[in-house]
């Protein structure tokens, strides 16, 4: 791959909580623009921590190492500034925001990120397009953000946000879990559209090969106990799906 580097993580170590429990240990990761990277690993390995750290979650402390986005050191930037720069995180557990409709939330969010006022007509067009790409009932956007959504609906709503906000880099944290087979297929098509139409770059955290069906994977990384223990191509995803993580966790 000779793609321009969009994200570079160098020797990253993070801790969490007052006891400063170490989670990520010396993680290195380089992602080229337009690439699709897969992160796999057993529960508790630190996959979500990695996503949160790239997205500036203050609950995770960076002890050492650096994160560069488009060549710029973003290690100390707040989450909102990272969003403005073009990073997006689809949450493993999306948060409910009562009292604000998805429609007005997304419109404000798009305005915050682009720094421009957006006309209703223009926004509605973007929103309708996004809804139809993932086969989502338009009534969802008039409901409060994620309030009363099922697990699967929340995940779909994250992809809806991805398709409206069109970031440069999207980290999808187990977006496929909680979705039925058909929904995984639809969401996978949505992710593909993000990549093809908007030139998106992806880091996909997953346990499930089905979501990758519509996508060309460039690299697969295996994260175990906070360390990237192996990096390979698309075939590594298949191998792990067949054999699991035993090879890495034993001994």
């Amino acid at each position: 791959m000779t793609n321009e580097i969009i994200l570079e993580i160098k020797d990253l170590c993070t801790t969490v909580g007052e006891e400063k429990t170490p989670i990520l240990r010396n993680v290195d990761l380089t992602v080229g623009r337009g690439e699709t990277h897969i992160i796999m690993g057993p529960n508790g390995a630190g996959k979500s921590t990695l996503g949160f750290t790239v997205m500036g979650n203050p609950a995770y402390e960076i002890e050492s190492g650096k994160i560069f986005f488009e060549g710029e050191d973003i290690t100390d930037l707040s989450a909102d500034k990272r969003a403005v720069k073009g990073i997006f995180l689809s949450f493993q557990n999306p948060i409910e925001v009562p009292g604000i409709s998805m429609r007005s939330f997304l419109k404000s969010s798009l305005q915050q990120i682009t720094g421009k006022r957006i006309k209703y007509s223009e926004f509605n067009k973007t929103l309708e397009e996004a809804l139809s790409l993932i086969n989502m009932d338009p009534s969802y956007v008039d409901r409060d953000v994620n309030v009363g959504f099922s697990g699967g609906e929340k995940k779909k709503a994250e992809i809806l946000q991805l398709l409206v906000l069109r970031p440069k880099l999207a980290i999808l944290d187990e977006t496929d879990s909680g979705l039925d087979v058909d929904a995984v297929r639809t969401v996978s098509q949505g992710i593909r559209a993000y990549k093809e139409r908007y030139g998106g770059t992806l880091i996909i955290i997953t346990h499930n090969a089905a979501i990758l069906e519509a996508l060309d994977v460039d690299k697969t990384h295996v994260l175990v106990k906070g360390k990237i223990v192996e990096t390979g191509g698309a075939d590594l995803t298949d191998e792990i799906n067949r054999n699991g993580f035993e090879k890495y966790t034993d001994g």
Binding site: M55, G56, I95, Q112, I113
Partner: peptide, 13 residues
């Protein structure tokens, strides 16, 4: 903090 962080990831300071 969770809600605030969620909104921050969507561009709100």
């Amino acid at each position: 903090d969770e809600i605030i962080y969620y909104l921050m990831t969507r561009g709100f300071d």
